[in-house]
Computed example of a mutant assay.
Amino acid sequence: MADVLARRGRDRLIVPGYLCSSMIEPFVQRGWRISSLGINERLGVPLDASRVLQDVPERTVILLAAYFGSRPDPTHRALIEEAKARGIVVVEDTTHRVFEPDVLGADLSFASLRKLLPVGDGAYVSGDEEILEVASGLEESDSERWEAMDLKRATLDGDGSHGFREIFQRENERLEDQGRIRRATPRSIEALSTLPYDAMAKKRADNARTLRQLLADAGISVMRRNGDGIPSHLVLQLDAPPVLQARLAQRRVYCAIHWPRVQGVHGLGPWRSDLLSVPVDHRYGPKDMERVASAIVEEVSR
């Protein structure tokens, strides 16, 4: 994507004020100037975000994302319209809302699918024929994640070893070291055509609702989202998330790692370091949410 846009004269990227380094790494490597549009208290587009659209629009790309399954709010939508009217290329990252992937008229959209779906590899990109052609010419993934997933399932069923952790770790290291830009495997493509998306989305919504109420009853703060949508996680606001994350892991409740502050982004404001994402996906039900809530309440009260 970065190479194709660069050939068209683009070399400036505007990003949200909260993101992971992998989102901008290809642009950093190619020497783009990267600036922040900021972030509001709910991790949405701030009301004054249009201030970042003034400079050299013909050279600019803006990357937007609605986090943790929130639906893009009116400010988000208005920024897309204004950016496009100025001639800025708009890219929408729908990774956290693949169950409702409305791209809002963006020029390009993409999502990493392993974040929310049970596939061993895969992402999608849409909206630009040249970029799609480049993507279709990539080598097929040689990831071992499907092997690790199969082994994990066998282990949980009592019919396998514990070697899946080592494979996952090895694949994570390969991804971090090499980028691993490949086409999805046929198995992932087949899985994506058969997944019960409606049932999975309902499970997420039900689990999030149950856990939110249990934690609210215990006085634990849950981040309010910008709007309705299918939640990717339930996000807690805490004083020391890494401490609670480690304690929950000891109790076999595994929460997602939030991003360290990125470097090289101009105008980046205060960094959110008070968030912890709790899983609410389709593997779980009310009893699981009760166990998770109990563990969180007990650990927060220590």
Rank of each mutant, 00 (worst) to 15 (best):
R77P: 01
R59I: 08
H258L: 08
G158Y: 02
H233D: 10
R212P: 09
K287N: 12
D288V: 00
P231E: 01
A218P: 03
A205P: 02
G69Q: 15
G122A: 13
A208F: 00
F99T: 10
F168A: 10
S301D: 15
S50R: 03
A191T: 09
L43D: 06
A6T: 07
L79E: 09
R86H: 06
V4R: 14
L63M: 12
V56E: 14
L211S: 13
G9A: 10
A199H: 15
G264F: 00
R7K: 06
D198F: 07
L195R: 09
A123D: 04
V90C: 10
E140V: 12
E25I: 01
L156G: 14
E166T: 15
G160M: 06
R51A: 10
E298F: 09
E100Y: 11
R153I: 15
R33H: 05
S193M: 14
E92N: 13
R51Y: 07
V300H: 04
I24K: 01
Q263P: 05
S232P: 06
V4D: 11
M200Y: 11
R77C: 05
E171C: 01
A184C: 13
R10P: 02
T155F: 14
V278N: 01
L79S: 07
V134A: 11
A199E: 15
Y67A: 02
C255E: 07
R71Q: 14
A293V: 00
M1L: 12
D281V: 01
R212A: 11
V134G: 05
F27S: 02
G105F: 07
P231T: 04
E129K: 12
R225E: 12
I62T: 05
R247K: 11
T95P: 02
L13V: 13
I296L: 12
C20A: 09
V222H: 00
Q213R: 15
W271H: 09
E139Y: 00
N207D: 03
L132D: 15
L5G: 03
S294L: 14
R247N: 11
L195G: 11
R247T: 07
R183V: 00
K152A: 08
N226C: 11
E173P: 01
R97W: 12
R33Y: 03
S136N: 12
A78N: 04
L268C: 03
C255H: 04
E176H: 05
S136C: 14
V56W: 08
E129Y: 08
A184M: 14
A154Y: 07
S232I: 04
Q245P: 00
R182Y: 02
R291M: 08
D93S: 06
D48Q: 07
V243E: 14
L214I: 06
Q169T: 11
E92T: 12
A201W: 02
R153G: 04
R71E: 10
Q237N: 07
A208K: 00
L37M: 15
A111W: 13
R145C: 11
A191C: 06
L214G: 13
H76W: 05
A154T: 14
G219E: 04
S50K: 04
L156H: 06
R212N: 08
F68I: 05
L108G: 01
D48H: 06
E58P: 10
D93M: 03
R10C: 04
R261Y: 03
R251M: 13
R183P: 03
Y197T: 06
L156V: 05
P279I: 01
G267R: 09
V222T: 00
G38C: 07
L63D: 07
P279S: 08
V300I: 15
D228Y: 07
